[in-house]
Simulated scan of single mutants.
Amino acid sequence: MPADPRPAPAAAFAPPPGIRYAGIGDEAAPALADQLAAVHQLGWNAVELRTVDGRALADLDDHTFGALTEQLAVTGTDVVCVDSRIADWSRPVTGPFTLDTDELRTLARRCPALGTRYVRVMSYPDGGLTEPEWGHRVKERMTALARQAEDAGLVLLHENCAGWAGTRADRMLDLLAHVDSPALRLLFDTGNGVPYGYRSAELLADILDHVDHVHIKDALPTAPGQAAYTLPGQGAAQLSDCLGLLLRHTWRGTWSIEPHTRLRPHDGTDSRADDGPAAFVAYGRALERFVAEQVPGAATAAVPAHGGVHG
């Protein structure tokens, strides 16, 4: 893919100090070129990778992966995290553990080429087990995975999503204490509390010191366990409270958009069609403006692009 000679546009508003904006690329489009184009249209230079042409990063053949790293280099795009399927909603704790260890082994070879140490994981559906046995097996598996990640120089980021420790701060902290490894940290998704039925800001306050990465989405509840995803600030995810809390505690890192307005892998929804990149860009612009105008502590850092500040 040839380099685009045109300079990237400036971000509409600069992020707060210490914060970087990025996005999960396949929320914009299946093809990597379109994913990167959407990110760069926002004036950002960072992407989070989950799938390319519908295939998980660990499932790409070596030739395709090599072409991917070339595209990243040519376009000057950094990878901030890899979203794996390890322990996610598709893999119950009663399933084959080798699926996870093999995927992590592949990512351990590929993450150095991508320039990231972060691998998103979850903590397994119960597979029909009782809660005590579910928790026991999760801790056992996550300990082994963390040791494997530690040996490879990677950091597993457990997301507040599917799994034993997905929706409760006490279980997240219990899991971290049990595993007791620098290779297991937390990923906080602002919008997951809406379908799962908890208040996001309250959970974040309990786990804040252990959070290394943030996903941005917002949503309104529609039925038990279901949500309709919205632009930032238009939902019930307490987005302003969550981001303000991070800034008040001088948190530093990446805020990565996961709009879910066109693509929701866990329920098979994919309506990106031709407007996926445009919708992704519109979401990113909405986040920039929302942060600048409605997040406490961010306004003084949010300078319009024409003032010369770039994201």
Score class of each variant (00 low, 15 high):
Gly191Leu: 00
Gly191Thr: 04
Asn192Leu: 08
Asn192Gly: 11
Asn192Ala: 09
Val194Met: 08
Tyr196Glu: 08
Tyr198Leu: 10
Arg199Thr: 12
Arg199Gln: 12
Ala201Trp: 00
Leu204Ser: 05
Ala205Glu: 14
Asp206Met: 13
Ile207Leu: 14
Leu208Cys: 09
Val211Cys: 07
His213Gly: 03
His213Ser: 02
His215Gly: 14
Ile216Gln: 06
Ile216Asp: 05
Ile216Leu: 13
Lys217Phe: 12
Asp218Met: 04
Leu220Ile: 15
Ala227Asp: 04
Ala228Cys: 12
Ala228Glu: 14
Tyr229Arg: 12
Tyr229Gly: 13
Thr230Ile: 04
Pro232Asp: 13
Gly233Glu: 10
Gly233Leu: 05
Gln234Cys: 15
Ala236Asp: 15
Ala237Gln: 08
Leu239Gly: 15
Ser240His: 08
Asp241Arg: 00
Asp241Phe: 02
Cys242His: 05
Leu243Lys: 06
Gly244Tyr: 05
Leu245Asp: 09
Leu246Pro: 09
Leu247Arg: 14
Arg248Phe: 08
Arg248Thr: 13
His249Gln: 10
Thr250Met: 06
Thr250Ala: 14
Trp251Asn: 00
Trp251Cys: 01
Gly253Trp: 07
Thr254Leu: 03
Thr254Phe: 00
Thr254Ser: 03
Trp255Asn: 10
Ser256Ile: 13
Glu258Asn: 11
Pro259Thr: 06
Pro259Trp: 04
His260Leu: 05
Arg262Trp: 08
Arg264Ser: 07
Arg264Thr: 11
Arg264Glu: 08
Pro265Asn: 04
Pro265Arg: 03
Pro265Tyr: 00
Asp267Lys: 12
Gly268Ile: 01
Gly268Arg: 01
Asp270Tyr: 09
Ser271Asn: 13
Ser271Val: 15
Ala273Ser: 13
Asp275Phe: 13
Asp275Ser: 15
Gly276Val: 07
Ala278Asp: 11
Ala278Pro: 02
Phe280Cys: 02
Val281Ile: 08
Val281Ser: 02
Ala282Phe: 07
Tyr283Leu: 07
Tyr283Trp: 07
Arg285Asp: 08
Arg285Gln: 10
Arg285Val: 12
Ala286Ile: 03
Ala286Asn: 06
Leu287Met: 09
Glu288Tyr: 03
Glu288Asp: 08
Phe290Gln: 09
Phe290His: 14
Val291Tyr: 04
Ala292Ile: 05
Ala292Phe: 00
Gln294Ile: 01
Pro296His: 00
Ala298Asp: 07
Ala299Glu: 03
Ala302Cys: 02
Val303Arg: 12
Ala305Trp: 06
Val309Gly: 05
His310Thr: 00
Gly311Asp: 01
